[in-house]
Design a protein around this nucleic acid. Structure first.
Lengths: 133, 133
DNA sequence: CAATAACATTCAACTCCTTGAATGTTATTG
DNA sequence: CAATAACATTCAAGGAGTTGAATGTTATTG
């Protein structure tokens, strides 16, 4: 069975991608849907390049997918199952009671945040951008 | 949220313990119940010390529990949930069809294997050892 | 209590991961 | 097409995980 160890290599790669607090934080933010990198930057407080590095790990592991829309690149969770895994592993912790609070972004100028701040301005932006379909 | 990154540290530790093909192979063998180290040695073909190292990682992460019975130490999966996680991650792989075949141990003298080989001999051993309770 | 069986631990060399800094890429604007 | 906004990639130094070899521990046997 030692010989067929490579059959576990693929699973191990997935776990390696998940074995990092910053990447788990990213997944927690993306739990409720796709977000652009600048949005993650505003919420998590990481440097942009650092975020890109961590996002690349998750993307290359097949856990995240990205979608470009003009300047922004939106990341989303590729496999919903991974959320179940995060829930389960979190339930292993001694004090699992503390809920994860995702703060509002502070200085985020992404289309999604502008929409919340001033619906009118956002509509203007939406009319310029190409349709989502 | 960057400040509360430590809240993801615990989960990351679990994933780190799972992020290794040899340790995943061990968990696969233990899927159907507890086994002693010499049994894992016979099935997986690892050196004893190497196995102990990997078992320690899983034990310290709280994924495995051990139980001593005379000379032998039996390891079992502490959290059944972890099997669901393994199943899910395995389903991510491209060719997930291939079933995992756990070979019969070749040179294993543990009580459990002796029982299979010669039931009479095993009964004798059981009568010597202290009860499971 | 000395010898042994079954495991565990320590150590060191090696490899892989992490992360700040610098630089590159792509799409848009004017 | 030059300038810019939003991301991505590369590189190198430091840190963490891996594993073979040697040694230690615990329970049992005689």
């Amino acid at each position: 069975m030692k010989n067929s160890l490579s059959s576990f290599e693929e699973s191990a790669q997935i776990f390696k991608a998940l074995a990092h607090p910053a990447r788990l934080a990213i997944l927690e933010v993306l739990r409720n849907g796709e977000e652009c990198v600048c949005h993650l930057e505003a919420i998590l407080g990481f440097r942009q390049a650092y975020l890109s590095q961590q996002l690349a790990v998750l993307r290359e592991a097949g856990i995240l997918r990205d979608r470009r829309e003009g300047w922004n690149i939106y990341y989303r969770i590729a496999r919903e199952d991974v959320l179940d895994i995060l829930n389960t592993v979190r339930s292993f912790a001694p004090q699992q009671g503390e809920p994860i609070i995702i703060p509002e972004p502070q200085d985020c100028d992404c289309p999604k945040c502008k929409r919340k701040d001033s619906p009118a301005a956002d509509l203007k932006i939406l009319s310029i951008q190409k349709p989502l379909g």
